[in-house]
Each structure stands twice: as structure tokens, then as C-alpha cells.
Nucleic acid binder design. Structure first.
Length: 234
DNA sequence: TCGTGATCATCT
DNA sequence: AGATGATCACGA
């Protein structure tokens, strides 16, 4: 049997950006991710034939999508995990001296049904079942191409972490479900923030006695929580 | 248009 | 400086 995952990465100059085949197991995924350790964004982009964004403002999400290609994530996963067959979600995380710099977007909130959702079947619960964290160093030190992949961590939340997540989720979704506006200051390890193309976007959400238009929101993990996850593994 | 990939930029 | 709210790119 041919193991395509062990084939050398293609050279630059390919007609279109390449994507590696999906990994067949979590083990294989972990091995691939380990292979990125120490490589720069520029090296990996060249190997896959990806062009680097020219302005930093235009580069949002680039490293995440590059990592998806390098590891063989399913581009059509939609709101399923990035590796649907493995139940694994991929998150690149910008680091500064071993500390996460930013919060981590997890998923959007279906505002209209915020009053009837349950934790166990929630989008957040599904997406955080197993996460491959891929640190990327040099966020404020190096140009995009010089930033370097760190040591990946395949993580499943502990019972305690799951309880923390659930408690925050229930508080936050409960507030939305009751028609209350929620800002980023609420939640111990999770937060709700606006998530839309711009500040004018509105969607239908529960309101006192009915429904009203509100800003679409997304769940984010606070950087302080992500720091504990990554620190536990070191 | 929505959801996912995040980072940017302003305010405190 | 850190955190919150705003914004940019892409694919289905």
C-alpha cells in the first residue's frame, strides 16, 4: 500500500496550492504535526505552493489555513471538526515566549435557538472534544514568513476543564437565551464576542417575550485558559 | 449569507 | 499593556 503521507512535499511553482491527503489516524496526524516543529511559515508555504499575503491586515487566518493544507484537514468540514473522521479540531495559536497572545475563536453561536440549546449536543462541546494545538512563535518579533511552528499538542479536555467549559457555556448561552446582551467581559475561561463581517450585521435572537435583531456572537477561549492547557503539557 | 480561519485596532 | 469589539479572506 502506498503511504502518501510519507511522500516528500511538492516543490513551489505548482499550478495551485496543494493539500496533503487526510491522515488515517490521530497517531498519523500527530506525527505529521511534529514534522512541522521548527519549520517556518515561509518554508511550509513554499513547499505547498502557497503565496504569502502581502499586507499583514490581509493575512488574518493565513497560517491556520496553511496548517490545514500541510496536515490534510478537510476543507469542506464546515462546522464539523477539521478532521471529521478523527474527530479532531486544529487550532494554530500565536505565541510570544511560550505564552498565547490571543484568545482562540471556537465557533459561532446560533443565536435564534440560544434559549433551547443543550451543552452535550452543543457546537462548542462537539468542537472541543479533541483539539490539536499548533503553536506559532514570533508573532511580534518576526515577519510572517519567518514565524516558526512550535511543538504540537493533541489535547482532550479533562473532567475539570469540561466542567469549567460547561459552566461558562451555560451562563453565557443562558444569558443570550433570556434576551440579555452579553459582552466579552463575562465568562471565566470562555467569552462571547461579536463575530461578523462588520459591526452592522444583525441576526434574529431571543428577546424578552419574543425575538429581536442582535449582533451575531462567537465563543472564544480566553488566552489565560489556553496558556494553562499548553503549560500542562510542558 | 453563513461559518471558519484568526488578527487588527481601539479603548480602558 | 491587556482586553474587547471590529474586521479581513475564503469556501460552500
Amino acid at each position: 500500500m502506498t503511504d502518501r503521507s510519507q511522500m516528500p512535499l511538492p516543490l513551489a511553482g505548482a499550478p495551485s496550492p496543494l493539500r496533503r491527503p487526510p491522515p488515517q489516524s490521530r497517531k498519523e496526524l500527530a506525527v505529521r504535526a511534529a514534522g512541522l516543529h521548527g519549520r517556518t511559515v515561509g518554508e511550509v508555504a513554499t513547499a505547498l505552493g502557497c503565496e504569502l499575503p502581502t499586507e499583514s491586515r490581509r493575512g488574518k487566518g493565513f497560517i491556520g489555513q496553511l496548517a490545514e493544507r500541510a496536515l490534510g484537514a478537510d476543507p469542506a468540514a464546515g462546522d464539523r471538526p477539521d478532521f471529521p473522521d478523527l474527530g479532531v479540531e486544529l487550532k494554530t495559536i500565536p505565541m510570544r515566549r511560550d505564552i498565547p497572545v490571543e484568545s482562540t475563536f471556537c465557533c459561532s453561536v446560533t443565536m435564534a435557538t440560544a434559549d433551547t440549546q443543550l451543552w452535550e449536543s452543543s457546537r462548542l462541546r462537539q468542537r472541543l472534544g479533541c483539539v490539536l494545538w499548533l503553536p506559532v512563535d514570533g508573532v511580534d518579533v518576526a515577519a510572517l514568513a519567518e514565524r516558526r511552528f512550535g511543538r504540537a499538542l493533541l489535547w482532550e479536555p479533562s473532567d475539570r476543564q469540561l466542567a469549567q467549559l460547561r459552566a461558562d457555556w451555560e451562563d453565557l448561552i443562558g444569558a443570550l437565551g433570556s434576551g440579555r446582551a452579553v459582552g466579552g467581559h463575562e465568562g471565566q475561561i470562555l467569552q462571547l464576542r461579536p463575530k461578523a463581517a462588520d459591526a452592522s450585521v444583525r441576526t434574529l435572537a431571543p428577546a424578552d417575550g419574543g425575538a429581536a435583531l442582535a449582533r451575531p456572537m462567537g465563543f472564544y477561549l480566553r488566552a489565560s485558559f489556553t496558556a494553562t492547557i499548553l503549560a500542562d503539557a510542558r
